[in-house]
């Protein structure tokens, strides 16, 4: 049996499958990926079911190795810096990790989350039929906690992938981060029309203190028309609540199942990942769409995820100046391992 070895891990690295569904009525949040589309993309590239358990990688970064035999991996990210034993790879890549080698994933200039799926099944005991980690209640994944150096994750039915790394073709992951689509409500009537307009237009600055539970927004505080306390009701992922200080909070994967602040709008499912990927300090605005538009966007996601997984060999497509200066002739291109010197 292959074993995935966590050689180094920053904070906030967890195992996530499609989520622990069916227990919201008992106060138990589903957890699951912050960027469901990217999580599914990694699983699809690894040949898994779209909701299989994968490693969710925060900007803290992770280094993994493998024991017991070569193991195929699919990594989906945008803007993360990936290296296999020091050789740079594209941010979305399929590769085979051999024992003794290390795959290093580090945050780059953009993107907050990446996903690493294995060709095989992470062989851990599920809790309530799910491996999704919810650290606040110490449930799921590995002992209900984030991954740490020294952790060993057994992989059942592990298999190698193609020998040479391949770039994943997934243009749908390149989502413009500036405008996030919402459906207004359920409590938009707690705000006057000019405040709803102010909410949509923003701009809002994403606070760096966000986590898997919530995305905090800074900007001009909104005014409530009818107070800021409501009798608690249900909270969907992507619900945007406005507490007493007027600054919106978008409730994400690890949110509580119910809450007592008015929710001015709800991020549509297909844009949850778009928002989750925005780094602290960046600015966003919102755009209200109809239910029909939101459902159409969902259909679009299903369509791309149902299409055959496309990949292309890693070839040198960009020559960094220092690389060109150091090159005597073009013979470096033909050394048989073109990805070795690639700069991305």
């Amino acid at each position: 049996m292959s074993v995935l070895i966590i050689e180094a891990a920053g904070p906030g690295i967890t195992l996530q499958d499609g989520g622990r569904h069916g227990y919201l009525r008992y106060g138990f949040t589903a957890a699951g990926p912050m960027d469901p589309l990217m999580h599914a993309t990694a699983n699809r590239a690894a040949g898994n079911t779209l909701d299989a358990a994968a490693i969710e990688i925060s900007t803290g970064g992770v280094t993994v190795g493998v024991e017991g035999g070569p193991l195929g991996l699919a990594l989906a990210s945008t803007g993360f810096r990936i290296a296999l034993d020091g050789e740079p790879l594209p941010p979305a890549v399929a590769l085979t990790l051999e024992p003794g080698r290390s795959l290093v994933v580090r945050a780059g200039d953009t993107g907050s989350w990446g996903y690493l799926a294995v060709q095989g099944r992470l062989d851990l005991a599920p809790v309530l039929s799910s491996l999704a980690t919810h650290t606040r209640s110490s449930v799921g994944g590995l002992d209900g906690r984030g991954l740490a150096a020294g952790d060993r994750i057994p992989v059942a039915d592990g298999r190698p992938g193609e020998r040479a790394p391949h770039r994943l073709v997934a243009p749908w992951l390149d989502r413009a981060p500036d405008t996030v689509r919402v459906v207004l409500g359920p409590q938009d009537d707690y705000f006057a029309p000019d405040q709803v307009a102010a909410f949509l237009g923003g701009p809002w600055t994403v606070s760096p203190r966000g986590d898997r539970m919530a995305c905090f927004l800074d900007g001009t505080p909104l005014k409530h028309a009818r107070g800021h306390d409501i009798v608690s009701d249900g909270v969907a992922m992507g619900a945007i609540q406005v507490p007493g200080n007027g600054l919106p909070i978008v409730l994400m994967a690890d949110r509580q199942s119910t809450g007592g602040y008015p929710k001015i709008a709800t991020v549509i499912g297909p844009d949850l990942g778009r928002l989750a990927q925005v780094r602290g300090g960046a600015q966003i605005a919102f755009r209200a769409v109809s239910i029909a538009d939101a459902v159409a966007a969902r259909r679009g996601e299903v369509k791309v995820l149902c299409s055959p997984a496309a990949r292309e060999p890693v070839v040198r497509t960009d020559f960094a100046p220092d690389f060109l200066l150091g090159l005597n002739l073009v013979d470096g291109v033909t050394d048989g391992r073109p990805w070795e010197h690639t700069h991305w």
Binding site: V182, V183, P186, G234, A236, T266, V267, G269, I291, V295
Partner: peptide, 11 residues
């Protein structure tokens, strides 16, 4: 009340 395109609140 709609809570996005995948949740409905019956209040």
């Amino acid at each position: 009340l709609d809570a996005g395109e995948a949740a409905l609140v019956v209040e």
